[in-house]
Design a protein around this nucleic acid. Structure first.
Length: 435
RNA sequence: UCCCCGGUAGCUCAACGGUAGAGCAUUCGGCUGUUAACCGAAGGGUUGCUAGUUCGAAUCUAGCCCGGGGAGCCA
């Protein structure tokens, strides 16, 4: 009869019973003829106790064992107030799967480390309980986002990574040599492609990595980040603001519900997240300018909002804030304008609370062939590359709208992390592509 | 691209013009309830690179390289 293998997160269900845990040695404290190893298995950590007198074989196998050596341990689960986590394992047997060499000890210690060092060790850094928690929350947020979109009747239609042209500014494109004289670029957004699939399927979204060659070095920027981009035919600005509210609320609430342990591990103030339910405050761009002026910020019509401005505006609310109808001149070529106020675009941004910045940008798209042509020329974009896009206006053009949600910024806000580099398994940033 | 800050042992830092140091990690020894355990000992360094100032430079100066934070731009 072999003992059952259990995960540490479920170990409490086996109190008083003999179990096996397959994992790694997280830390080892020695106290004479008693050893206090801490094991981790990816789902949590648990302290073991090994007595020389009772289990000499296990004791000798564990004594001097190096951090992060892989082990299979067997023992009895016991409720123990003195143990971190409430349970400990009275180890009776320990099998070392691979012993970490003393000459090349595990580099990450149980103490503070610098950012540069940790990023160089990212492949190992993700083993720490904090990083593992963040990655579980990211997964939860992704799952919640897809479930929500699917529940709203949206179909996932993935957009290509290689594209023939820009869809945002041309200066932020990663160029890739393709066949002979052809150029390809890494996508900045799946937006143009979901416009096409929206005309085919009605309500669609894409979800995948996007790339921006921006020279941005801030805690809110990654060179490679994931974006969820819904697009719906016959939809208008109002529809997208409502969809964005529902999507963000679902992502936050599912994490609160299903990842309470991880949020607690991160010491996140969950009461702030529990409030994130529709409706969110909505203000027009012009009103936002007014709020800024009242708070001593000299912003004027036509200015874009930077981090400072976003913080001032979001500070007045405990939910994400939707700012809509930005000046048309500030927005991308495909953005529709307000018929009543042609100088304003039918666009909106959603600003996360607590200074996490813009998590959604979107709006209603141009549907007129003539206007699209005109804007392409104004923006010096190559018409020949956009013939397929123009076809969408030639053949049954309809009003349509959508937005892009930045996954990492949203998850960073949910987790309360200082920097978004922690919320993606392997961050790609300016000057950093290792590991 | 611009503005600030930094680079000393494997890691986190100290020394700020006069012999390069501590804690952690590693090795050895001790400890039956430890909580980033503790106690004792040992090994471990071209102070990011190059040039300059000086009797003497980790320390002052210049240039370069690397990293961090921010601006612009964006999600």
């Amino acid at each position: 009869m072999s003992t059952p293998v259990v995960s540490i997160e479920h170990v409490g269900e086996h109190a008083g019973k003999e179990v096996s845990i397959r994992g790694w040695l997280y830390n080892l404290r020695e106290s004479g003829k008693l050893l206090f190893p801490i094991f981790r298995d990816g789902t949590g950590i648990i302290q073991g106790v090994i007595s020389l007198k009772e289990h000499p074989d296990a004791f000798n196998a564990a004594k001097g064992l190096t951090q992060e050596s892989s082990v299979v341990v067997t023992g009895k689960v016991a409720a123990e107030a003195r143990a971190p986590g409430g349970y400990e394992l009275h180890v009776s047997a320990l099998e070392v799967v691979q012993r970490v060499s003393e000459s090349q000890p595990y580099p990450i210690q149980l103490k503070e480390h610098g950012v540069d060092f940790l990023l160089d060790q990212r492949h190992l850094w993700i083993r720490t309980p904090r990083q593992a928690s963040i990655l579980r929350i990211r997964a939860e947020a992704e799952r919640a986002a897809r479930n929500f979109m699917d529940s709203q009747g949206y179909t996932l239609t993935d957009a290509p990574i290689f594209t023939p042209a820009a869809c945002e500014g041309t200066t932020t494109l990663f160029e890739v040599d393709y066949i002979d004289d052809q150029k390809a670029y890494l996508t900045q957004s799946g937006q143009l492609y979901v416009e096409a699939t929206a005309a085919a399927l009605g309500k669609v979204y894409c979800f995948g990595p996007t790339f921006r060659a921006e020279k941005s070095k801030t805690r809110r920027h990654l060179t490679e980040f994931w974006m969820l981009e819904p697009e719906a035919a016959y939809a208008h600005l109002e529809d997208m603001m409502a969809l964005g509210e529902g999507l963000v609320s679902a992502m936050v609430q599912e994490c609160v519900k299903n990842r309470a342990r991880e949020l607690e591990m991160l010491k996140r103030d969950v009461s702030k997240l529990e409030k994130i339910k529709p409706p969110f405050p909505r203000i027009m761009y012009e009103e936002a300018i007014k709020v800024l002026n009242e708070n001593g910020n000299p912003a004027k019509f036509g200015d874009d909002f930077g981090g400072d401005e976003e913080t001032i505006i979001s500070k007045n609310f405990d939910k994400p804030v939707i700012i809509h109808r930005y000046p048309a001149a500030m927005k991308a070529f495909y953005m529709a304008t307000d018929a009543a106020r042609p100088e304003l675009s039918l666009s909106f941004d959603m600003i996360a609370p607590e200074g996490y910045g813009e998590i959604i940008g979107g709006g209603e798209r141009l549907s007129s062939y003539e206007t699209v042509i005109e804007r392409l020329r104004q923006n010096n974009l190559p018409e020949e590359s956009f013939q397929w896009y123009l076809d969408l206006r030639r053949y049954g053009s309809v009003p349509h709208a959508g937005f892009g949600l930045g996954l990492e910024r949203t998850v960073a806000w949910i987790c309360g992390t200082e920097h978004i580099r922690e919320v993606i398994p392997f961050p790609r940033m300016l000057y950093r592509v290792y590991p």
